[in-house]
Design a protein around this nucleic acid. Sequence first.
DNA 1: TCAGTGACTGACC
DNA 2: GGGTCAGCCACTG
Length: 109
Amino acid sequence: MRNESFFEKVYDVVKQIPAGRVTSYGAIAEYLGSRGSARMVGWAMNKSHIHPDIPAHRVVNRKGMLTGKNHFGSPNIMSELLENEGIKVQNDRIIEFEKLFWDPGRHLH
DNA sequence: TCAGTGACTGACC
DNA sequence: GGGTCAGCCACTG
């Protein structure tokens, strides 16, 4: 049903990302059937503050870089949240991003 | 309705 | 990995 907006679906996926794992905007967009609309996912994250439990820090770009850290109020919050979950962050980039990558299309098939 | 905006991505270097 | 360019599309005013 389309009772949910595009970003409502995005939140539904993001909330299912397990702790200690990360995914990319493009992966979520692709899972929602809007491949190439990764910007919409990032845009949805921008408004995720209206939702209580959106682990937006577990969503990064396809290179594993914390491009959205600037939207957490303070640039260091995002990396601290990730490190708190056991994810190593160095120079605004997730170490071993490929190993920690969580594909919604594979887990939520 | 139209134009602006953007937490991206792929191509290229 | 990182900068630039162009395409992408849902939402806002």
